[in-house]
Design a protein around this nucleic acid. Structure first.
Length: 144
DNA sequence: AACATGGGCAACCGCCAACAT
DNA sequence: GATGTTGGCGGTTGCCCATGT
């Protein structure tokens, strides 16, 4: 299938978004919506590709996004959903209002790292590899 | 006080599926 | 039905900051 020549276009900005760009994007989306991400940056006067705009909006600028630390309940929900759904971050995010797939993915990776470290530090269950994880009834994780 | 290391997060890349022509 | 376009998703990378040495 054809690949979309998105960010490789010359003259498009990459890297962190500035507050000015955020303002422009928010104002444009609130006024016109985001029917066409590809056309949006041109209409809004942003030197970004549509993908970049969409990502910024979905992961950071959306008004319904809940910022800040994850509660214990949310973490438990992520763990539970991950067990059921696997790495379907968007599906998990859909069940956690105000959270984005990117955020959940980040949390998972950092938590997984922590848990792996913990597990290696306290090898109370011998012979487990690190290939897969499963939840025990106590809420702790086994990497089998 | 300076440097090294690790963690957390935002953003990018590449692929795929759905839709349009 | 074939081809092109767009949006969406998951994996990965790079930067910044906090902490340790």
């Amino acid at each position: 299938m054809a690949r979309s020549p998105c960010c490789d276009k010359m003259g498009l900005k990459k890297g962190p978004w500035t507050p000015e760009e955020d303002k422009i994007l928010v104002a444009h989306v609130q006024k016109h919506g985001h029917g066409n991400w590809r056309a949006l940056p041109k209409q809004a006067g942003l030197l970004r590709c549509g993908k970049s705009c969409r990502l910024r909006w979905v992961n950071y600028l959306r008004p319904d996004i809940k910022r800040g630390n994850f509660s214990r309940e949310e973490e438990d929900a992520i763990i539970d959903l991950h067990e059921k759904l696997g790495n379907r971050w968007s599906a998990i995010a859909a069940r956690l209002p105000g959270r984005t797939d990117n955020e959940i993915k980040n949390v998972w990776h950092t938590n997984l790292k922590k848990r792996l470290k913990k597990k290696l530090a306290t090898p109370n269950s011998k012979g487990h590899s690190t290939a897969a994880a499963s939840k025990c009834d106590s809420g702790t994780w086994r990497y089998t």
